[in-house]
């Protein structure tokens, strides 16, 4: 079975608070690490949350477990980890308001 892969979930798009990436199915993985990099200056900080769900349908969004990390204006990287398992269907990244604390 596949043991690791890298997938760009979103690129070159303007992100607003509470935007969520398209779901990426990774039920085969034990762990997901999500990275975010700003491509321009932006206007405020935010937090990146990892969402996981057992369902392939985004209509059934449910953040069963999640961690969050800071997203700074460019140029920066952020990284969030989430333990997922074969019981989970997909994972995605959501950005919310406020500085990370």
């Amino acid at each position: 079975m596949l043991t690791s892969t890298v997938a760009t979930l979103t690129r070159g798009e303007a992100w607003r608070l509470d935007d969520v990436s398209e779901p990426y199915e990774a039920g085969w993985a034990l762990e997901a690490q999500l990275f975010a990099r700003g491509l321009d200056e932006g206007d405020q900080q935010g937090k990146a949350h990892v969402q996981v769900s057992p369902m392939a349908s985004a209509g059934a969004t449910r953040a069963a477990r999640s961690t969050c990390c800071p997203v700074m204006p460019c140029p920066s990287f952020a990284c969030a980890n989430s333990a997922i398992s074969s019981a989970c269907g997909w994972t995605c990244l959501r950005v919310s308001n406020g500085p990370f604390s």
Partner: peptide, 19 residues
Amino acid sequence: MLPVFRPMNQPMLSTAVGW
């Protein structure tokens, strides 16, 4: 990048889960 390509994203491995 031309607009038609910008929203495209990656294929994934799926067990085709339904509710």
